[in-house]
Protein backbone atom coordinates (compact mmCIF):
# COMPACT_ATOMS: atom_id res chain seq x y z
CA UNK A 1 0.00 0.00 0.00
CA UNK A 2 1.06 3.59 -0.59
CA UNK A 3 0.40 6.36 1.90
CA UNK A 4 1.03 9.91 0.76
CA UNK A 5 0.75 12.51 3.49
CA UNK A 6 0.78 16.28 2.92
CA UNK A 7 3.32 16.18 0.12
CA UNK A 8 4.67 19.35 -1.44
CA UNK A 9 7.00 19.59 -4.43
CA UNK A 10 8.37 22.55 -6.37
CA UNK A 11 10.51 22.80 -9.46
CA UNK A 12 12.29 26.10 -9.03
CA UNK A 13 9.56 28.61 -8.25
CA UNK A 14 6.79 26.44 -9.70
CA UNK A 15 4.78 24.59 -7.09
CA UNK A 16 3.83 21.30 -8.69
CA UNK A 17 2.33 19.52 -5.69
CA UNK A 18 0.50 21.37 -2.96
CA UNK A 19 -0.40 19.44 0.15
CA UNK A 20 -1.33 16.18 -1.55
CA UNK A 21 -2.56 13.30 0.60
CA UNK A 22 -3.65 9.98 -0.85
CA UNK A 23 -3.83 6.36 0.20
CA UNK A 24 -3.53 3.56 -2.32
CA UNK A 25 -4.93 0.56 -0.45
CA UNK A 26 -3.38 -2.89 -0.93
CA UNK A 27 -4.62 -5.05 -3.81
CA UNK A 28 -6.54 -2.14 -5.25
CA UNK A 29 -6.09 -0.08 -8.39
CA UNK A 30 -6.05 3.65 -7.97
CA UNK A 31 -6.18 5.66 -11.17
CA UNK A 32 -5.04 9.28 -11.17
CA UNK A 33 -6.47 11.47 -13.91
CA UNK A 34 -6.32 15.17 -14.59
CA UNK A 35 -5.14 17.74 -17.14
CA UNK A 36 -1.50 17.99 -18.21
CA UNK A 37 0.60 19.85 -15.70
CA UNK A 38 -1.69 18.93 -12.83
CA UNK A 39 1.19 17.18 -11.05
CA UNK A 40 -0.04 13.60 -11.37
CA UNK A 41 3.16 12.23 -12.92
CA UNK A 42 5.29 14.09 -10.39
CA UNK A 43 3.22 12.61 -7.58
CA UNK A 44 3.78 9.12 -8.98
CA UNK A 45 7.52 9.70 -9.42
CA UNK A 46 7.76 10.92 -5.83
CA UNK A 47 6.51 7.52 -4.70
CA UNK A 48 9.84 5.84 -5.52
CA UNK A 49 11.96 8.95 -5.07
CA UNK A 50 12.69 9.54 -8.74
CA UNK A 51 11.57 13.00 -7.68
CA UNK A 52 12.29 14.13 -4.15
CA UNK A 53 9.23 15.50 -2.39
CA UNK A 54 10.14 18.74 -0.58
CA UNK A 55 7.78 18.24 2.35
CA UNK A 56 5.42 15.63 3.71
CA UNK A 57 5.80 11.89 3.99
CA UNK A 58 5.37 8.91 1.68
CA UNK A 59 5.14 5.37 3.00
CA UNK A 60 5.28 2.21 0.91
CA UNK A 61 4.00 -0.89 2.67
CA UNK A 62 4.25 0.89 6.02
CA UNK A 63 7.85 1.93 5.49
CA UNK A 64 8.73 5.57 5.12
CA UNK A 65 10.52 6.11 1.83
CA UNK A 66 10.77 9.88 2.26
CA UNK A 67 9.90 12.34 5.00
CA UNK A 68 10.38 16.10 4.93
CA UNK A 69 12.69 16.13 1.94
CA UNK A 70 14.94 13.37 3.27
CA UNK A 71 14.75 10.08 1.36
CA UNK A 72 15.84 6.79 2.89
CA UNK A 73 19.58 6.08 2.86
CA UNK A 74 20.65 4.72 -0.52
CA UNK A 75 20.81 1.06 0.42
CA UNK A 76 17.35 0.89 1.95
CA UNK A 77 15.98 3.08 -0.81
CA UNK A 78 17.27 0.64 -3.43
CA UNK A 79 15.67 -2.25 -1.59
CA UNK A 80 12.34 -0.46 -1.41
CA UNK A 81 12.52 0.56 -5.06
CA UNK A 82 13.12 -3.09 -5.95
CA UNK A 83 9.73 -3.85 -4.42
CA UNK A 84 8.07 -0.98 -6.25
CA UNK A 85 7.65 -1.63 -9.96
CA UNK A 86 7.59 1.36 -12.26
CA UNK A 87 6.37 1.55 -15.84
CA UNK A 88 7.28 4.63 -17.84
CA UNK A 89 5.51 6.45 -20.63
CA UNK A 90 8.52 6.02 -22.93
CA UNK A 91 9.15 2.37 -21.89
CA UNK A 92 12.86 2.96 -21.15
CA UNK A 93 13.81 -0.55 -22.16
CA UNK A 94 17.56 -1.13 -22.26
CA UNK A 95 18.39 -1.05 -25.99
CA UNK A 96 21.66 -2.97 -25.62
CA UNK A 97 19.96 -6.04 -24.16
CA UNK A 98 17.53 -8.49 -25.73
CA UNK A 99 13.99 -8.60 -24.42
CA UNK A 100 14.66 -11.50 -22.07
CA UNK A 101 17.89 -9.90 -20.84
CA UNK A 102 15.94 -6.73 -20.09
CA UNK A 103 13.65 -8.74 -17.85
CA UNK A 104 16.25 -10.95 -16.16
CA UNK A 105 19.03 -8.39 -15.60
CA UNK A 106 17.74 -6.74 -12.44
CA UNK A 107 17.05 -10.01 -10.56
CA UNK A 108 20.62 -11.08 -11.40
CA UNK A 109 22.26 -7.78 -10.47
CA UNK A 110 20.13 -6.70 -7.54
CA UNK A 111 19.06 -10.00 -6.03
CA UNK A 112 22.06 -12.07 -7.05
CA UNK A 113 19.80 -14.63 -8.72
CA UNK A 114 21.50 -17.32 -10.81
CA UNK A 115 21.28 -16.59 -14.52
CA UNK A 116 19.48 -19.80 -15.44
CA UNK A 117 16.89 -19.21 -12.76
CA UNK A 118 16.46 -15.56 -13.78
CA UNK A 119 16.01 -16.58 -17.40
CA UNK A 120 13.33 -19.04 -16.44
CA UNK A 121 11.56 -16.38 -14.38
CA UNK A 122 11.86 -13.91 -17.27
CA UNK A 123 10.52 -16.38 -19.82
CA UNK A 124 7.53 -17.06 -17.59
CA UNK A 125 6.79 -13.35 -17.36
CA UNK A 126 7.23 -12.83 -21.10
CA UNK A 127 4.75 -15.65 -21.66
CA UNK A 128 2.38 -13.90 -19.30
CA UNK A 129 2.54 -10.68 -21.34
CA UNK A 130 2.44 -12.58 -24.63
CA UNK A 131 6.03 -11.94 -25.70
CA UNK A 132 7.79 -15.28 -25.26
CA UNK A 133 8.39 -15.41 -29.01
CA UNK A 134 10.25 -12.08 -28.80
CA UNK A 135 12.62 -13.10 -26.02
CA UNK A 136 15.80 -13.02 -28.06
CA UNK A 137 15.29 -9.91 -30.17
CA UNK A 138 16.43 -6.41 -29.33
CA UNK A 139 13.84 -3.84 -28.25
CA UNK A 140 14.37 -1.75 -31.38
CA UNK A 141 12.51 -4.41 -33.35
CA UNK A 142 9.44 -4.38 -31.08
CA UNK A 143 6.29 -2.34 -31.58
CA UNK A 144 5.35 0.25 -28.97
CA UNK A 145 2.80 -2.03 -27.39
CA UNK A 146 5.26 -4.91 -27.25
CA UNK A 147 7.89 -2.63 -25.71
CA UNK A 148 5.53 -1.56 -22.98
CA UNK A 149 4.49 -5.14 -22.25
CA UNK A 150 8.18 -6.08 -22.02
CA UNK A 151 8.71 -3.15 -19.65
CA UNK A 152 5.87 -4.42 -17.47
CA UNK A 153 7.44 -7.89 -17.44
CA UNK A 154 10.76 -6.30 -16.48
CA UNK A 155 9.16 -4.55 -13.51
CA UNK A 156 7.34 -7.75 -12.47
CA UNK A 157 10.61 -9.69 -12.45
CA UNK A 158 11.49 -7.98 -9.18
CA UNK A 159 8.27 -9.38 -7.67
CA UNK A 160 7.04 -5.93 -6.67
CA UNK A 161 4.37 -5.46 -4.06
CA UNK A 162 3.30 -2.19 -5.63
CA UNK A 163 3.20 -1.11 -9.28
CA UNK A 164 3.38 2.48 -10.48
CA UNK A 165 2.30 3.28 -14.05
CA UNK A 166 3.22 6.67 -15.48
CA UNK A 167 0.98 7.22 -18.51
CA UNK A 168 1.85 3.76 -19.84
CA UNK A 169 -0.13 4.11 -23.06
CA UNK A 170 0.35 7.78 -23.89
CA UNK A 171 3.23 7.15 -26.29
CA UNK A 172 1.42 4.35 -28.14
CA UNK A 173 -0.41 4.31 -31.43
CA UNK A 174 -4.12 3.99 -30.66
CA UNK A 175 -4.40 0.45 -31.99
CA UNK A 176 -1.66 -0.74 -29.61
CA UNK A 177 -3.20 0.69 -26.45
CA UNK A 178 -5.55 -2.23 -25.83
CA UNK A 179 -2.88 -4.93 -25.55
CA UNK A 180 -1.09 -2.99 -22.79
CA UNK A 181 -4.28 -2.21 -20.91
CA UNK A 182 -5.22 -5.89 -21.08
CA UNK A 183 -1.99 -6.84 -19.32
CA UNK A 184 -2.61 -4.18 -16.68
CA UNK A 185 -6.16 -5.36 -16.21
CA UNK A 186 -4.94 -8.91 -15.63
CA UNK A 187 -2.50 -7.63 -13.03
CA UNK A 188 -5.24 -5.72 -11.26
CA UNK A 189 -7.43 -8.81 -11.22
CA UNK A 190 -4.60 -10.79 -9.68
CA UNK A 191 -4.63 -8.41 -6.75
CA UNK A 192 -1.62 -6.23 -7.51
CA UNK A 193 -1.56 -2.88 -5.73
CA UNK A 194 -1.47 -0.37 -8.55
CA UNK A 195 -1.28 3.38 -8.92
CA UNK A 196 -1.92 4.39 -12.52
CA UNK A 197 -1.58 7.82 -14.06
CA UNK A 198 -3.45 7.70 -17.34
CA UNK A 199 -5.71 9.41 -19.83
CA UNK A 200 -7.50 6.13 -20.57
CA UNK A 201 -10.96 6.81 -19.19
CA UNK A 202 -12.24 3.44 -20.34
CA UNK A 203 -9.55 1.74 -18.26
CA UNK A 204 -10.26 4.00 -15.28
CA UNK A 205 -13.94 3.21 -15.51
CA UNK A 206 -13.57 -0.53 -15.77
CA UNK A 207 -10.50 -1.41 -13.72
CA UNK A 208 -10.07 1.32 -11.11
CA UNK A 209 -11.31 0.85 -7.57
CA UNK A 210 -10.72 4.51 -6.94
CA UNK A 211 -10.38 7.40 -9.37
CA UNK A 212 -8.46 10.45 -8.19
CA UNK A 213 -8.78 13.73 -10.06
CA UNK A 214 -5.87 16.16 -9.85
CA UNK A 215 -5.66 19.76 -11.00
CA UNK A 216 -3.11 22.48 -10.26
CA UNK A 217 -1.11 20.31 -7.91
CA UNK A 218 -4.02 19.33 -5.73
CA UNK A 219 -6.44 16.44 -5.51
CA UNK A 220 -9.80 17.98 -6.33
CA UNK A 221 -11.93 14.87 -6.04
CA UNK A 222 -11.70 11.17 -5.54
CA UNK A 223 -14.22 8.39 -5.49
CA UNK A 224 -15.47 5.31 -7.25
CA UNK A 225 -15.40 5.39 -11.07
CA UNK A 226 -19.21 5.58 -11.16
CA UNK A 227 -19.21 8.60 -8.95
CA UNK A 228 -16.46 10.43 -10.79
CA UNK A 229 -17.70 9.72 -14.30
CA UNK A 230 -21.43 9.95 -13.81
CA UNK A 231 -21.86 12.27 -10.89
CA UNK A 232 -18.76 14.40 -10.29
CA UNK A 233 -19.15 16.87 -7.46
CA UNK A 234 -16.42 19.32 -8.33
CA UNK A 235 -16.65 21.80 -11.16
CA UNK A 236 -12.96 21.12 -12.01
CA UNK A 237 -13.75 17.45 -12.56
CA UNK A 238 -16.70 18.25 -14.78
CA UNK A 239 -14.64 20.72 -16.76
CA UNK A 240 -11.88 18.19 -17.28
CA UNK A 241 -14.22 15.38 -18.35
CA UNK A 242 -16.12 17.75 -20.64
CA UNK A 243 -12.87 18.84 -22.25
CA UNK A 244 -11.99 15.18 -22.83
CA UNK A 245 -15.32 14.48 -24.53
CA UNK A 246 -15.07 17.66 -26.60
CA UNK A 247 -11.55 16.78 -27.58
CA UNK A 248 -12.70 13.33 -28.58
CA UNK A 249 -15.57 14.69 -30.65
CA UNK A 250 -13.15 17.08 -32.31
CA UNK A 251 -10.94 14.11 -33.12
CA UNK A 252 -8.10 15.31 -30.95
CA UNK A 253 -8.22 12.43 -28.52
CA UNK A 254 -8.82 9.01 -29.95
CA UNK A 255 -9.83 7.32 -26.69
CA UNK A 256 -13.56 7.49 -26.12
CA UNK A 257 -14.86 8.23 -22.66
CA UNK A 258 -17.96 6.11 -23.04
CA UNK A 259 -16.71 3.06 -24.92
CA UNK A 260 -14.23 0.70 -23.43
CA UNK A 261 -11.18 -0.04 -25.57
CA UNK A 262 -10.81 -3.37 -23.79
CA UNK A 263 -13.98 -4.60 -25.45
CA UNK A 264 -12.39 -4.47 -28.87
CA UNK A 265 -9.53 -6.75 -27.86
CA UNK A 266 -9.04 -10.01 -29.71
CA UNK A 267 -9.11 -12.39 -26.75
CA UNK A 268 -6.71 -12.70 -23.85
CA UNK A 269 -2.95 -12.78 -24.04
Amino acid sequence: MIEIRNVYKSFGSTEVLKDVSLTVPPSRTTVVIGPSGSGKSTLLRCCNCLEIADRGEIRINHRTIIADGKPLPDKELNALRAETGMVFQSFNLFPHMTTVENVMRAPVVVRGMAKAEARELAMGLLRKVGLDDKADVYPSTLSGGQKQRAAIARALAMKPKVMLFDEPTSALDPELVGEVLQVMKTLAEEGMTMMVVTHEMGFAREVADTVVVMADGRIVESGSPEQIFTNPVQERTRGFLRALVDGHLAGARPQPVADDPLDTLPGNH
Partner: peptide, 11 residues
Protein backbone atom coordinates in the same frame (compact mmCIF):
# COMPACT_ATOMS: atom_id res chain seq x y z
CA UNK B 1 15.02 7.45 -18.56
CA UNK B 2 17.65 4.70 -18.79
CA UNK B 3 19.13 5.60 -15.42
CA UNK B 4 15.64 6.07 -13.96
CA UNK B 5 14.47 2.69 -15.20
CA UNK B 6 17.55 0.98 -13.76
CA UNK B 7 17.17 2.75 -10.41
CA UNK B 8 13.44 1.98 -10.30
CA UNK B 9 14.37 -1.72 -10.50
CA UNK B 10 16.44 -1.34 -7.35
CA UNK B 11 19.89 -1.02 -8.90
Amino acid sequence: GQMEAARSLGM
